[in-house]
Design a protein around this nucleic acid. Structure first.
Lengths: 247, 247
DNA sequence: GATCTTATTCGTACGTGATACGAACAGAGT
DNA sequence: ACTCTGTTCGTATCACGTACGAATAAGATC
């Protein structure tokens, strides 16, 4: 009874194109994207988006059914950025997939909210293009379809997980430099825990790092994280190539 | 001016333990966890948690500073479930890390909200224990500390990403069986896109799958996803072992 | 045991967000 | 000029997080 016109995704619903709409879904998505990038995802509110467009809040509901539709639009807009230039796909499957992986990660990290706001992400047009590119990259493996899909999925898993963790790390680092007291508190708490004796491994690492200047933790700079990603990616591709008997 | 008592994480703030508090942070976390698992993360509201405990809404704020504290408590409670029995750590580094990875994934998937709700996740006591276990697993590699950390991080990336995607897939599958119309709409939309000719790879896959009974998409059952995870994990470990010159 | 202190509980109020509803407005076809 | 209905948006409702301060009661002091 509640949700009758609630069917499907925005992609299946025709956008208003009749007489003379003042806006388009693209404009809405762009406005939302702009706000998210500049002021954070939480700042993306229907009112704020409307204001950005110079429209009344409720006007947006003529173009979308609800806010999750807007988010879907945003997600898909991002995926457009994740597309690689066609030349990259004509390399070996390994280089092509690596190129896609690198670019995807870049885009994800450029929009930190993208991964944390993925309520059942819709499969929009740019998602299809992105997927098509991955298939093209994997085409030269000569693998059967299921294996090809699996290859893509596994690499995607790694990319998403790495982006997620990298975003977390960088966010934390940013917060930390804004509020040094917090770091101090966290560190002293950690040390106190270590002294319980329940963390021999951690204690060893901490003691080891005490000599050098490094803060004895995982790397926190963007380049360090990217280098780590790169090494992991290559290792993963190695392993997959071997298991799938690829050259 | 705004946030002066806002320092640090809950872990650094002492829990009320003076005269006779009627509740504990653990009870609050448990109640919240129960609600999240049964009714979804969105159902976890301060009022709802309080009701679950038979307390007034604002009572919670005596134990916690804000809702993100509650979420941090929930995250840490989950990590307790992710700890593996000690025996698992005394195997080869490969088996030990695989055991941790498998268990972590299980737990993440058992609480689908955990990954989508990670505003800068706090590093609580169980996070430390979890990390300690990973370090113990990686200890027998004989690698230097940085390499050990990287090994753990890369595997964790894959685990998180896979769990994320698996959760998405299963959620979508669940929604789909509840509303078959949506699937039909999505499929017809997809086919229409294919006919534009812009998706040769996808079209090929679709045509190939048209003969068999499979819906020509990525696997959607939990066991299929778990099997895929397993194969990817082994491949990743292969690749890492080779790159790090481990046996 | 009566009284006091303050730890602990919680009712009320405010600000914000999503969005249902329906009125106001305007462009196109007659 | 008039009508039809596509398009815009003001108002109202409900849910949420939480600031503030009042109400309550546990334990210390006498």
């Amino acid at each position: 009874m509640a949700t009758e016109h609630d069917h499907g995704t925005i992609w299946t619903l025709p956008a208003p194109a009749g007489r003379k709409p003042r806006y388009t879904r693209e404009q809405i998505a762009d406005a939302a994207l702009r706000i998210a990038d500049q002021e954070g995802f939480d700042a993306v509110t229907m009112k704020r988006i409307a204001a950005e467009l110079g429209a009344g809040t409720m006007t947006l509901y003529y173009y979308v059914r609800n806010k999750t539709d807007v988010v879907a639009l945003m997600q898909d807009a991002i995926l457009a950025e994740a597309l690689v230039p066609g030349e990259d796909l004509r390399q070996s499957w390994r280089d092509a997939m690596a190129a896609i992986a690198r670019r995807s990660r870049q885009v994800l990290m450029a929009h930190p909210w993208s991964l944390s706001s993925l309520n059942e992400a819709q499969f929009g047009p740019n998602a299809m293009r992105h997927f098509e590119q991955s298939l093209a990259a994997a085409a030269s493996t000569g693998l059967a379809a299921p294996a090809r899909l699996e290859l893509i999925a596994v690499v995607d898993d790694y990319v998403a997980g790495n982006a997620l963790h990298a975003i977390e790390a960088l966010t934390r680092a940013k917060l930390a430099e804004a509020d040094p007291d917090m770091v101090a508190a966290a560190v002293s708490y950690g040390i106190a825990q270590l002294e319980s004796g329940d963390f021999p491994q951690l204690s060893a690492i901490y003691a080891e790092g005490a000599g050098s200047e490094e803060p004895a933790g995982p790397p926190m700079t963007e380049t360090a994280l990217t280098d780590q990603f790169e090494r992991g990616l290559l290792a993963l591709l190695d392993g997959l190539a071997a298991r799938l008997r690829l050259s």
